[in-house]
Amino acid sequence: MRKRHRLNLLLLLVLFCIAALEFGVSLPPVPAATRPILALPAAIMAVLVALGYMRLLDAPAIARGFAMAGIFWLAILLGLAMTDPLTRTIYAVTRQIGS
């Protein structure tokens, strides 16, 4: 039981560091193209919480299967859907209705 508490506390500190890092990195102006790197700290924190606090590793085998299925299908949704706007050559012209 003591080991579990120490592990939880360590994970808390690691998460705080990543959150602080993420907050810090975003302050200086970063060119628009490299902004997706902000997804990296968020993804790392999410995986850490899933493994640490949600104890994905000692959950039953199919629970790990369901978690992987969720991630895989999310990747399909994001990946395949983005092939359209990224390669669509014609301009989507916007016409502003003045508020």
């Binding site: 629970a63 299908w73 999310l74």
Partner: peptide, 23 residues
């Protein structure tokens, strides 16, 4: 536990729909 993880997988897709719309 397995049932909850499956429900969370469906929630991942639910918020995933929001993320793709944002992208």
């Amino acid at each position: 536990v397995a049932g909850m993880w499956l429900f969370l997988a469906s929630e991942v897709l639910f918020f995933g729909g929001l993320i793709i719309a944002w992208m």
